[in-house]
Write a protein that binds this DNA or RNA. Structure first.
Length: 652
DNA sequence: CAAGCCGG
């Protein structure tokens, strides 16, 4: 470490470079700038950059122009460093606040709060540095806290928040006039205010009786983008239902009815008539089979069908099951990348007569709004999914709300075709789905509960089950057993479990990117373009060979040669998270519920975890009473949304 | 405390 001298550089400049904000300049090269005589912005020139090691003429020129282009970010760093804040915060600033971010921050330092990872304290410090006499009661501060409170709620999936909760949050931050802050947030256009619903009038209300007032405690606020997305979904549901014409006579279902149970046939018939319909049911009830028959019928009639799913893996599976192309919803809509826009929309709708989206429980409200807007009048849309599984990552409770609205026709499949209907897994799943944790009585050991105290013991039990008990006592090959855990971290998280399982099942030191032949891997991103068929996020496979910087992996969907930028998107896959396991099933599954996962246990998580098992399920239970509580309560944190009511109201 | 998609 050199001590500062008179020739020491500009602290803003060094913070800018060290934070990795100069595009194309790595950490290592950044550290070498002073040696090349570059310590302040004025020093930056192509000639000086050329003095850096590993930098040739072309790269020097490119670095120079990328430095000039990053002037807006530089200006933001100047503000941040001047306020004693981390330069790193400037990273996403242009995306969020636009190219004139610095000016906007000088006008309203609390606009910094619209970036993720910024606390109110950070924004207050910037305000003190930027404004003369910054004031806690500043109207801009109150307005920003309203937005911050709603954005925080969004991370838990809510699209709206009771106004009372926002008022309480404002009070907690010392805002003297919360109502004024809310008005300011609404006037800025960022926030919408929703009046409480009109109370339902009792039938026997006398004419002269006083009408009941709406309950002001039910007044809610939303971020405009999500509030408007819910309104768009509600309107478009009604538009599609109103504009659809019957595609075919219901009797035509008979042509594909072979092998479909009556409920499944009814679902197919429903799609032919209704502009918008839902098909729900748990794993093994034949949702995808029903879709396959529907597609077969429509193709025979020459109807244009588009198939999609929210995840790459679900799309891939849908394509295999229906023998018809399927893509992610993002692909279907022509996602524009960072801008977040879609090329298929109201102006350029999808050219399909029937659109089917599988795994619809993963649809958040914004993607659903985009999907519905891209469906032209007369398009029939079918959403297929299981409302009992994990909710979407993005805010909203779309599938559940569509069902709860009571307006959209729903076919629920309940007959189990895949698993032994009377088996212990099925009984347990049915119980959990209904909010009960039944005593499992499974003399055939289809379900085995292994109690454990603490996550270290839980981890030992898992390894023992996979490597010893399950193969020995049940004759199940460890290669077909999947371990599923809620968490990455801790002794019973994916990271440690994979280490322990690798040591037992395929010891080795990882020759290519930490992997050896025989390792089980899981994909953490989509690479559907790799040869020959690529892989999708969440797919599990086995390494069958290693090359120079490449891996051959056998995924269940087929072999893939994994190279280049796809390699970092593989991890060891003996143990994976419940979230990543969603949409896949294995003959044998070991579910671990460590005590540290107690806070994140919920009915959908438990249900999703145990329904991954087809023939055998071991549950290593170390989370005590938290498990029964999670299953009993409908949802640990139910999502607050407005969609169900909006749809119902538009229909009346 | 975990997680989808997209493009450069």
């Amino acid at each position: 470490m050199s001590t500062p001298t008179s020739t020491a550089g500009d602290p803003v400049f060094s913070a800018f470079c060290a934070a990795g904000l100069w595009p194309g300049l790595g950490k290592r090269t950044a550290a070498e700038l002073p040696a090349a005589g570059i310590t302040r912005p004025d020093d930056v020139s192509a000639d000086r950059l050329l003095k850096l090691p590993r930098v040739g003429r072309q790269r020097a020129e490119r670095l120079f122009s990328s430095f000039l282009a990053s002037a807006p970010t530089y200006e933001v760093v100047q503000l941040l460093v001047g306020a004693g804040l981390e330069a790193k915060l400037a990273a996403g600033v242009a995306d969020t606040l636009g190219p004139d971010a610095a000016r906007r921050l000088r006008d309203d330092p609390w606009a910094l709060l619209s970036l993720s990872g910024v606390s109110l304290g950070d924004a207050d410090r910037l305000a003190i540095a930027v404004l003369k006499g910054a004031d806690r009661q500043d109207a801009r501060r109150g307005r920003a806290i309203v937005g911050l409170t709603l954005r925080t709620a969004t991370r838990d999936g809510h699209t709206v928040l009771p106004a009372d909760l926002v008022v309480a949050a404002l009070r907690a931050e010392g805002i003297g006039d919360p109502a004024a802050a809310i008005v300011a947030a609404v006037e800025s256009g960022e926030v919408l205010e929703h009046e409480p619903p009109e109370p339902e009038l009792p039938d026997d209300l006398p004419d002269d009786a006083e009408l009941p007032e709406p309950d002001p405690a039910l007044r809610t606020l939303s971020l405009a983008r999500f509030g408007m997305a819910e309104e768009a979904v509600a309107e478009n549901v009604h538009r599609l239902m109103a504009t659809a014409e019957r595609i075919a006579d219901p009797a035509s279902v008979r042509s594909v009815a072979k092998g479909l149970d009556p409920a499944q046939q009814a679902a197919v018939a429903q799609v032919l008539g209704a502009g918008f319909s839902l098909l729900t049911g748990g794993p093994g009830t034949g949702k995808s089979r029903t879709v396959a028959s529907l597609v077969q019928l429509l193709q025979a009639k020459g109807t244009e069908v588009a198939l999609a799913a929210p995840t790459g893996r679900a799309a891939k599976r849908l394509e295999e099951l229906t023998d018809h192309p399927a893509v992610t919803v993002h692909r279907l809509l022509g996602a524009q990348g960072m801008t977040g826009g879609f090329s298929r929309n109201e102006e350029w709708p999808l050219d399909a007569d029937v659109v089917v989206v599988d795994e619809a429980s993963m649809l958040d409200v914004e993607l659903t709004a985009a999907l519905l807007e891209a469906c032209a009048d007369g398009t029939h849309l079918l959403l297929v999914g299981d409302p009992a599984q994990l909710p979407s990552i993005g805010p909203g409770h779309v599938l559940g709300d569509l069902i709860d609205s009571g307006v959209v026709p729903v076919t629920e499949l309940t007959t189990l075709h895949r698993q032994a209907a009377g088996g212990a897994i099925a009984r347990l799943a049915t119980g959990v789905r209904a909010g009960e944790l039944p005593q499992v009585d499974s003399p055939d050991r289809e379900v085995v509960i292994v109690p454990a105290v603490g996550s270290a013991e839980a981890a030992r039990r898992v390894v023992q089950l996979v490597t010893d008990s399950i193969p020995r006592a049940l004759g199940i090959d460890p290669a077909t057993v999947q371990v599923v855990t809620p968490v990455h971290r801790g002794p019973a998280g994916t990271i440690e479990l994979n280490k322990a399982l690798k040591a037992q099942l395929n010891p080795g030191d990882g020759t290519v990117w930490g992997f050896d032949v025989g390792d089980r891997v899981v994909a953490t991103a989509n690479h559907l373009d790799l040869e020959p068929i690529g892989f999708a996020n969440g797919e599990v496979g086995v390494v069958t060979g290693t090359g120079e910087g490449s891996l051959n992996v056998d995924f269940s969907s087929g072999p893939v040669t994994v190279t280049g930028n796809a390699l970092p998107d593989l991890r060891h896959g003996w143990a994976i998270t419940v979230h990543r396991a969603q949409g896949s099933e294995w003959p044998g599954v070991v579910v671990v519920l460590p005590p540290e996962a107690g806070g994140m246990l919920s009915r959908p998580l438990v249900y999703t975890a145990l329904t991954r098992a087809q023939k055998h399920l071991s549950i290593v239970h170390a989370s005590g009473a938290a498990l029964a509580r999670a299953v009993r309560e409908v949802d640990v944190r139910p999502r607050r949304t407005r969609l169900a009511r909006l749809i119902a109201e538009l229909g009346s």
